[in-house]
């Protein structure tokens, strides 16, 4: 990619900035429309992660039980750890799945109204991001409760200030992938189904239900290398470090991940831009 491509990218970013009002309204519309007609309305944004948290506590905490010494054999601590990873993972996986579909679902818009199509995947990633933010108070509330009542539970630490950095890395990564997927699915509809399966695999190939310090991973170089090559690994570890353990983030690894995220964003956007003209007739 040469200078020309970079200039094009900057122009595109400027256009997106011009359309920020539209993105804002569309995200608002998504959020409003999602719970329209439900009795509990916006409360669902909190109830969903809360219920998820309870299910994980029961299944992984009590039934399967924590296997790693890091959790002192305490199911509640393990559930909190799980929640730290599942919450951002839900953001990532829902965004990817929805982004892969969004150009087809909103095809009418692309065909009939003049506006930059990338607004649509951006709206998908952003509205899921807002949902993720709704889950954070539940996460922090649970952590506060646990650190009060469970002995030896890790408390809040100053390193929480790095949480926005982790979120930023994930946002760029998710958006880059979302742009790539949305553009490609227009031409290859199979991606939708491939992606659904791939995400299941990806979930277990990331340290979400197990910590990186888990015995088998520590022992196996192959497993460790494999996990370290997965950008999601470093993002998840970032959440676990800042929120659960209250430790310093791994600057170097996370910054490399940021670089990867930016590259994926640039490549994703480039592909999107190349295929853009074919959208109105293919969706």
């Amino acid at each position: 990619m040469g200078v020309k491509a970079m200039i094009k990218l900057l122009e595109n970013l400027k256009t997106i900035y011009r359309y920020r009002g539209l993105i804002q309204s569309l995200v608002g519309r998504e959020l409003k429309a999602r719970y329209r007609g439900t009795v509990l309305g916006f409360l669902w944004s909190f109830i969903n992660p809360l219920l998820l948290m309870i299910i994980y506590t029961i299944v992984f905490g009590f039934i399967i039980g924590p296997r790693d010494p890091a959790f002192n054999n305490n199911p509640i601590l393990y559930a909190l750890f799980l929640f730290c990873g599942v919450l951002p993972w839900t953001w990532f996986s829902s965004s990817s799945l929805e982004a892969a579909n969004v150009l087809m679902i909103q095809g009418n818009l692309i065909k009939k109204v003049l506006f930059p199509a990338e607004v649509l995947p951006i709206v998908v990633v952003t509205s899921n991001f807002i949902h993720f933010l709704f889950g954070l108070p539940i996460l922090f509330g649970a952590k506060a409760l646990i650190s009060c009542f469970v002995p030896n539970a890790p408390g809040f630490s100053i390193y929480l200030v790095f949480l926005p950095y982790v979120i930023l890395v994930q946002y760029i990564f998710t958006l880059g992938l979302g742009l790539f997927l949305s553009a490609l699915t227009v031409h290859f509809r199979d991606i939708k189904d491939i992606l659904a399966n791939l995400l299941t695999f990806w979930f277990f190939a990331s340290p979400i239900i197990y910590p990186m310090t888990f015995g088998p991973i520590k022992k196996s170089v192959i497993l460790r290398t494999f996990l370290n090559l997965n950008p999601i690994t470093h993002i998840m570890v970032g959440y676990q470090n800042t929120v659960y353990f209250g430790e310093m983030i791994r600057w170097k690894r996370l910054s490399v991940t940021l670089l990867v995220a930016i590259i994926i964003f640039i490549v994703g956007y480039h592909v999107f831009d190349k295929l853009r003209d074919s959208f109105p007739e293919e969706v």
Binding site: R29, A33, R36, K111
Partner: peptide, 30 residues
């Protein structure tokens, strides 16, 4: 362009909100 009227309407939200979103899509400010 009056190509397809109400192309960007979202069925679940009110006419009022749709006016705003559709207007922004067509290039109006809030």
């Amino acid at each position: 362009a009056l190509i397809e009227l109400g192309a960007g309407f979202h069925p679940e939200i009110s006419g009022r909100e749709n006016i705003y979103i559709n207007g922004i899509m067509l290039g109006l400010s809030k």
